[in-house]
């Protein structure tokens, strides 16, 4: 178990350190996320009335699109420079590699969220941090999204059509996360009573648990060579 945790920590640290030095992934995810918000602004005419209803939808579509960008890049880098083979050659449990990559991706997504939320708050003069529950929803949603996303990205980068393949593979599978996260977020933003938000939180949790364990079980058959 200790060896597993050390291997996991090493993979996470490697990803974070590489990102800290190059800032390739986060900067492109961030710029992309902000662009999506601006495009929504023009496409949806986000006046005060419309905003109240669509804020959570806009936020989640932004996270999901930026997340796809990050997932694709995170595993494409490993594949292109032959790092994936190096990782697989290491005498550690391969699921440690999966969890390491998934955690790093989760961190990137949360960093993007941590910057998008205040920017959105300033641009539209709403305080998205007023409800602490929203941050939990973002964490749970991002966890489910990256758990499946990392696994599918590991498959997509090994295919010929990899860049266009990931969203096509990922979106139909993460629809439950998206629906639950959007509804729970908008529940918090509109200050609905807890019993209306709870079913969504339960669904998110169930999804996270189920898909993290499935990914844990099948990851090895995705990377074996």
């Amino acid at each position: 178990m200790r060896g597993f945790l050390r291997a996991l920590g090493a993979v996470v640290w490697k990803d974070l350190a590489a990102e800290l030095r190059s800032r390739e992934l986060l900067s492109s995810m961030l710029v992309f996320a902000l662009l999506v918000i601006f495009i929504f602004n023009f496409a949806l005419e986000l006046d005060a009335v419309a905003r109240a209803n669509v804020t959570s939808g806009v936020l989640w579509v932004t996270f999901v699109f930026a997340g796809t960008l990050g997932l694709n890049r995170s595993l494409a880098v490993e594949k292109d420079r032959g790092c994936l083979d190096g990782l697989l050659l290491a005498p550690v449990d391969r699921t440690a590699i999966y969890f390491g990559k998934a955690i790093a991706n989760l961190v990137f997504m949360l960093v993007v969220a941590a910057i998008v939320l205040p920017v959105y708050s300033i641009l539209y003069n709403v305080n998205l941090f007023a409800q602490g529950g929203l941050l939990w929803v973002i964490f749970l949603g991002a966890e489910g999204y990256t758990a499946v996303g990392t696994l599918l990205a590991a498959m997509a980068v090994q295919a010929r059509t990899r860049d266009i393949l990931l969203p096509i593979l990922l979106f139909p599978v993460v629809i439950p996360v998206l629906v639950a996260a959007v509804k729970a977020s908008s529940g918090y933003l509109q200050r609905l009573p807890m019993e209306e938000i709870l079913p969504w939180l339960q669904l998110l949790l169930a999804y996270d648990v189920i898909f993290t364990s499935i990914a844990f079980m099948v990851f090895e058959s995705v990377v074996e060579e």
Binding site: L152, M155, Q158, I175, P176, V179, I210, F211, I214
Partner: peptide, 25 residues
């Protein structure tokens, strides 16, 4: 064959969750 098997499993498990999410909706 391997990737197909993995995706078939993941996809099928997500289907009931999708159904529930839309039904609560």
């Amino acid at each position: 064959a391997r990737f197909g098997a993995v995706y078939a499993i993941i996809g099928f498990i997500s289907v009931p969750l999708t159904f529930f999410s839309i039904r609560i909706y």
